[in-house]
Computed example of a mutant assay.
Amino acid sequence: MRILLVLAHPLEESFAASVARVAKETLEGRGHTVDMLDLYREDFDPRLSESERGSYFSEPYDDAEVSGWIARLKAADGLVLVFPQWWFNFPAILKGFFDRVFAPGVAFEHDSAGGRIIPRLGNIRLFWALTSTGSPWWVVHLYMGNPVRRLLKRGIAAFCAKGLDFRMLALHDMDRATEDKRKRHLERVRALVSRI
């Protein structure tokens, strides 16, 4: 399987980078091909351009500035996202990746009758998120309703592809995580990813 592994963290030595390394090593060890897309190292600009937004409802979508990233998404069989949750949401650079790369004609089509959008990412069979959050489990799930999971599963994944294997693994209370807790989480990542 060809996996597009997307990392969204500004620090090269972050815990998210460690998670991405473990995921990449495990996937490659299982015989998968991994396309590592480090949004910060590749200087991805998250800002939707005027021409991109202007062509959002016309044919064709102006993908000139993001065509390389779109090609990588279209070449993948699976997508694994690695990112921290900040303010119960995606880092801005990852949100921009969705805005600019998961575009009309790429990830979906507009229904001309005005109904639900039509999924176009038929190549993506696996959509996983490996994430962390500074808040405890109960705050994320009970108080906030796990917004990132809802956005990924019910919004982006469900609207862009059908029949996906969707999973999300999160390390909660990251701000107070001991080194031992982080090591145990990396082993959980290794064990989960080895099932792919």
Score class of each variant (00 low, 15 high):
residue 151 L to R: 13
residue 124 I to P: 08
residue 131 T to G: 09
residue 97 F to M: 06
residue 148 V to I: 12
residue 42 E to K: 10
residue 74 K to G: 01
residue 146 N to T: 06
residue 127 F to E: 10
residue 33 T to S: 13
residue 143 Y to L: 14
residue 130 L to G: 12
residue 52 E to I: 06
residue 153 K to R: 14
residue 131 T to N: 13
residue 24 K to E: 15
residue 72 R to D: 03
residue 81 L to I: 11
residue 80 V to P: 00
residue 74 K to E: 15
residue 45 D to M: 01
residue 57 F to H: 13
residue 84 P to F: 10
residue 127 F to D: 08
residue 72 R to W: 01
residue 134 G to Q: 04
residue 84 P to S: 11
residue 143 Y to Q: 12
residue 139 V to L: 14
residue 27 L to T: 06
residue 79 L to C: 07
residue 71 A to C: 00
residue 136 P to S: 13
residue 80 V to S: 01
residue 121 L to I: 09
residue 137 W to F: 14
residue 64 A to H: 10
residue 144 M to D: 01
residue 90 F to G: 03
residue 154 R to Y: 11
residue 156 I to W: 14
residue 34 V to I: 08
residue 62 D to I: 00
residue 56 Y to C: 01
residue 117 I to L: 12
residue 105 G to L: 07
residue 60 P to D: 08
residue 53 R to L: 14
residue 67 S to E: 14
residue 72 R to L: 10
residue 48 L to Y: 02
residue 141 H to L: 05
residue 40 Y to G: 01
residue 156 I to N: 02
residue 53 R to Y: 13
residue 31 G to H: 08
residue 128 W to K: 10
residue 133 T to S: 15
residue 29 G to R: 05
residue 49 S to H: 02
residue 129 A to Y: 05
residue 127 F to M: 10
residue 60 P to F: 13
residue 98 F to L: 11
residue 135 S to R: 06
residue 28 E to S: 05
residue 84 P to N: 10
residue 140 V to D: 15
residue 156 I to V: 15
residue 58 S to L: 09
residue 69 W to M: 10
residue 52 E to R: 06
residue 53 R to P: 00
residue 115 G to W: 07
residue 132 S to T: 15
residue 28 E to I: 09
residue 94 L to A: 13
residue 52 E to A: 06
residue 58 S to G: 04
residue 90 F to W: 07
residue 80 V to M: 11
residue 88 F to R: 00
residue 151 L to F: 08
residue 37 L to S: 00
residue 59 E to D: 15
residue 47 R to V: 15
